[in-house]
């Protein structure tokens, strides 16, 4: 600030502050982060290593972390134990989970984003009232409507579609899309309209490409909840052919002989798609946030 000459004799002060945290501070930060990371990663690592070890070496305290006598036997074992009409086939569980989750995620992205666009940008009678209803629905837990829903859909038990139909339209997703769309500059919609795009093409060419972050987070959230869905499949399926992975993993755990190596192998196969989806979309998410220079 000051341009006044320094009094003679005063040594020039070298300012080192504001060049980032000090070394000690940094060390503490790293320490905290490392501890946290260990807490989060350790169980997954434990499961992964355990899934590759013979049963007697799995639940072995800290030694469970030691990778020794590794093999894929446990995986083969899981497949072998689900290999008849009575137990169901492992690939059927996987297929069920995949079909149901993919339909819920993709169908949900389409339906909920379009609904949110209608709430955020189109003008229609009763819009605010309906939006309020949607927001109220966000706080209603699924457990509260499970029983009425059960009676409603009782005729469709043991199908794929009964497992995804109730979850495609999702109030929370609509709400997430809505808040994001409302925050996008309205001028871009207007520019698109003047450029000759109707509501559909404005949505498709302008809104959607600018909304990658919210599409990514809704994908992650929806996949997480649908992949782990438990209560509804318990109510609606009793044939192994239509049972998803979370149901079978619990069945498997309760079935003697309890082989922790195989249980962990099942667990790894269950978690793998979650990790993949998360990693793929998280990168997209971070990228989009970094590149969204919306103001022209």
């Amino acid at each position: 600030m000051s341009t006044r000459p320094q009094p003679t004799g005063t040594a020039p002060v070298v300012v080192t502050a504001n060049q980032g945290p000090s070394a000690a501070r940094k060390a503490v930060n790293y320490l905290v982060l490392i501890v946290l990371a260990v807490f989060f990663i350790a169980p997954i690592l434990y499961m992964f290593i355990g899934s590759l070890k013979p049963a007697d070496k799995v639940l072995n305290g800290l030694a469970g972390f030691i990778p020794e006598s590794l093999s894929l036997d446990n995986y083969a074992g899981v497949f072998a134990r689900f290999n008849s009409e009575a137990t169901g086939y492992f690939y059927n569980f996987y297929l069920t989970s995949l079909i149901v989750s993919v339909v819920i995620v993709i169908g949900g992205l389409v339906v909920n984003s379009m609904a949110a666009y209608a709430f955020a940008r189109l003008r229609w009678r009763g819009r605010d009232a309906v939006m309020l209803a949607v927001i109220l629905l966000v706080i209603v837990p699924f457990e509260a409507i499970a029983v009425p829903l059960f009676y409603l859909l009782n005729g469709s038990r043991n199908t794929y579609y009964v497992q995804f139909i109730p979850f495609v339209a999702n109030a929370l997703s609509i709400y997430l899309f809505y808040t994001f769309f409302v925050g996008l500059p309205k001028q871009l919609d207007e520019a698109a309209r003047v450029d000759g795009a109707g509501p559909w093409r404005t949505f498709l060419y302008i809104i959607v490409p600018m909304s990658k972050p919210v599409f990514a987070s809704v994908t992650i959230l929806t996949f997480l909840s649908s992949w782990g869905s438990f209560l509804w499949p318990v109510m609606m399926t009793d044939q192994p052919r239509y049972r998803p992975l979370p149901l079978e993993i619990s069945v498997f755990q309760g079935q003697p002989p309890t082989d922790w190596g195989q249980i962990f192998a099942f667990g790894v196969m269950f978690v793998l798609p979650l990790l993949i989806v998360f990693l793929v979309f998280q990168r997209w998410f971070v990228q989009s946030v970094a590149s969204s220079g919306l103001k022209g």
């Binding site: 001028q187 520019a191 450029d195 000759g196 109707g198 600018m210 220079g293």
Partner: peptide, 30 residues
């Protein structure tokens, strides 16, 4: 008539360029 039926072009104060499109795509959008 809706904007797209009026055959007019508008230049906005903040330009309202589509951030996810190149200059070529921006200009060619209409």
């Amino acid at each position: 008539k809706s904007p797209q039926e009026r055959d007019i072009a508008m230049v906005f104060q903040d330009y309202a360029l589509y951030p996810h499109m190149t200059v070529r795509q921006n200009m060619g959008f209409a």
